[in-house]
Amino acid sequence: MSTSGHHHSADPDPRTFSRTTLDLGDTLLRPWGRASAEPATLLDGLIFAAADPLIALWNPLAISDRDAALGWLEVREGGWDAGVSASFAAWNAADGVLLGGVTVRWVDRADGLAMIGYWTLPTARGRGVATRATRAVTTWAFRTADARRIEIAHAVGNKASCRVAHRCGYLPEGTLRDSHRFGDGAYHDEHLHARLATDQGPADPAEWSTA
């Protein structure tokens, strides 16, 4: 379903992710999509991101050239069109440089269960970008898409992702054994974190200097 005219639909689903831009001041979160592909510098930015060792390990993008990057954008656009996933690009508001991405998607739409994931480029790390972006998208999903529970699952070895989860108020719920095959081709244990819509949000820390 296209979001154009969505609000006039006869049977709107409250659990629908509708395109929006989230303004965090120095960072803008905008929907990924084919329109983002111009100029082609974004496609090259995605190729660069996919080649980063940490992204390739923990958040493989399967992008090796501009055609693959365009296909990746089209899949994200399709998720927006169907209202089943919300994939945001994080941009530096001052110079338009790509910083990373955040995606929230339904695991069980009827049950209000979603999952969120995030990645940042090397130049954005250590500045709190992942934390602030994830908190913003989490709040947005609870408020506008009627999410009931949002989960984060990250490899046990991904310490930075664990810090982001804690800072965003996602409580640790246990370890999932050999639950996901990562970019190295091996199955890794994952830490499961979750937030409920009824949970009190995390307090604002003075700074997030390492995520």
Rank of each mutant, 00 (worst) to 15 (best):
M1V: 14
M1Q: 08
S2K: 13
T3V: 12
G5M: 02
H7C: 05
S9T: 11
P12R: 11
P14S: 01
R19L: 11
R19E: 13
T21I: 11
L24Y: 07
L24P: 03
L24M: 01
L24W: 03
G25A: 02
D26C: 02
P39C: 05
P39H: 06
A40L: 10
A40D: 15
T41L: 09
T41N: 03
L42W: 07
D44E: 12
G45K: 06
G45E: 04
A49W: 10
A50D: 11
A50C: 03
A50H: 08
P53K: 11
L57F: 07
W58Q: 08
N59D: 13
N59C: 12
N59S: 14
L61W: 07
A62D: 15
I63W: 01
D65R: 06
R66D: 07
A69G: 15
A69E: 00
L70Y: 12
W72S: 08
L73Q: 07
E74Q: 14
E74D: 15
V75R: 13
R76Q: 12
G78L: 07
W80V: 05
W80E: 03
D81Q: 14
A82S: 15
G83M: 08
G83I: 05
S85A: 14
A86L: 05
A90Q: 09
A93D: 09
G96Y: 03
L98H: 14
L99S: 03
G101A: 15
G101D: 10
V102M: 00
T103R: 12
T103D: 07
R105G: 12
V107G: 10
A110H: 03
D111M: 11
D111K: 09
G112S: 04
L113W: 10
M115N: 13
I116R: 04
G117L: 01
G117S: 10
T120H: 06
L121P: 04
L121G: 03
R125F: 02
R125G: 01
R127C: 04
G128W: 05
G128T: 00
V129D: 00
A130L: 00
T131G: 05
T131L: 00
A133S: 15
T134N: 00
T134M: 14
R135Q: 12
R135P: 00
V137I: 10
T138P: 02
W140Y: 11
A141L: 01
D146S: 14
R149P: 04
I152E: 05
A153K: 13
H154R: 13
A155H: 09
V156Q: 07
G157T: 07
N158M: 05
K159H: 15
A160K: 01
A160N: 06
S161F: 02
R163H: 10
R163A: 14
R163E: 13
V164N: 03
V164Q: 05
V164K: 06
V164E: 00
H166A: 15
H166Q: 14
C168A: 14
C168P: 02
P172F: 10
P172S: 09
P172I: 01
T175Q: 09
T175R: 13
T175S: 01
S179Y: 13
S179I: 00
F182C: 10
F182D: 09
D184S: 08
G185L: 02
A186P: 02
A186R: 14
Y187F: 15
D189G: 02
D189Y: 07
E190S: 11
E190T: 06
E190L: 12
H191T: 12
L192N: 07
A194Y: 01
R195S: 13
D199C: 08
P202M: 08
P205V: 11
P205G: 06
A206R: 09
E207F: 12
S209E: 12
S209A: 14
